[in-house]
Design a protein around this nucleic acid. Structure first.
Lengths: 189, 189
DNA sequence: GTCTATAGTGGGATAGAC
DNA sequence: GTCTATCCCACTATAGAC
């Protein structure tokens, strides 16, 4: 499971291609070309095309899992926890904007244990977030609306951040955090 | 360009498969099997696999284009326009939840004129929305935050609605509209 | 309109020389 | 570690019988 520098480079290059065309439409030959080598040579570094996807998706999923665990266990109010989750997503997006496309759109092409692990991590993540929202509602910090609507309106925005973060001329991360927290928590009116 | 009933059925069945695996990972054989026929027989009804995607994506894109045109030209306040856009997305999502996956994730596999047309429709749509937001800010109806952050936080949520609308046990459409408008406009605090 | 058969292409992956 | 050559398979699409 240890990653050589070369393997990291392959995964990075591949993630850019996956973002553009999706996992299924990218061939091993495409990835090899991006690395400046032939497809056969790639197999000295990786076991299969799927392995690239697994590393990409599961590593990133673990980042989110660790991030929310740290938020969950910290001794702050539900509302502050949600702020930290927003910042967590922004930080991960800024550092992994290519890989997030695969996480969002190509995870279903994982197989076996990897697929099971990923789905479990994603469900656990949503469940942690859901609990924080419900706690906030009970404490009167959050409006008593359908928790599922709150959960997914925030999460949808955070999960697709990668799509426009690059495009829109390098917003300063701290400005972005401030505005996102404001819009997502206090609305626009 | 006229659609036979059979062609509509093919597009509908295909969109369910595209939602599950993505356009590239769905074969013409898969679509044929779903129709209860062999792949070769499909070609009596369609010109190519791409044609299915084009019909799917462009028809739906036109629905959004028509919808926002009607909102744009109606004689109501910017805030009311945004409410109507939210309702437009919910209505389209409820009636086309399968096809929306292809619209969001597979449009890049369009080619030629179809790709150009789609990208233009999407940009025009965003520009219409952006103008409404800016107008709202100028009139003091909307908080003076980065319009791009507002645009994409709302649009991200609306565009990925299809992912969880089905899953979450058939929320009543009117309740959904009410809660979505509340959360997206007035936040959760 | 549906089928079988098949053309033609490109996919993932391996063998073995260098 | 990289290459050429190749295997085998799945893909889109077509031809032609029924």
């Amino acid at each position: 499971m240890k990653l050589t520098a070369r393997k990291v480079e392959i995964v990075t290059k591949a993630s850019r291609l996956f973002k553009e065309k999706g996992y299924s439409a990218v061939s091993v030959r495409d990835i090899a070309q991006e690395m400046g080598m032939k497809a056969a040579s790639l197999y000295n570094h990786i076991e299969s095309k799927q392995e690239i996807l697994s590393i990409l998706v599961l590593d990133l999923a673990r980042d989110f899992t660790c991030g929310i665990a740290s938020v969950r266990e910290s001794n702050i109010s539900p509302l502050e926890k949600i702020e930290q989750i927003i910042e967590l997503h922004i930080d991960i997006t800024v550092n992994n904007s290519e890989a997030l496309a695969a996480l969002n759109n190509d995870w279903m092409h994982l197989e076996g244990e990897d697929l099971i692990d990923f789905v479990k991590m994603r469900e656990d993540y949503e469940e942690d977030f859901r609990k924080i929202i419900k706690e906030g509602v009970e404490l009167g910090q959050i409006q008593p609306r359908h928790p599922e609507v709150i959960l997914f309106s925030i999460l949808s925005t955070l999960r697709t951040l990668y799509l426009w973060y690059q495009k829109r001329g390098k917003l300063d991360v701290n400005v972005l955090k401030k505005d996102m927290v404001a819009v997502l928590l206090r609305g626009i009116v």
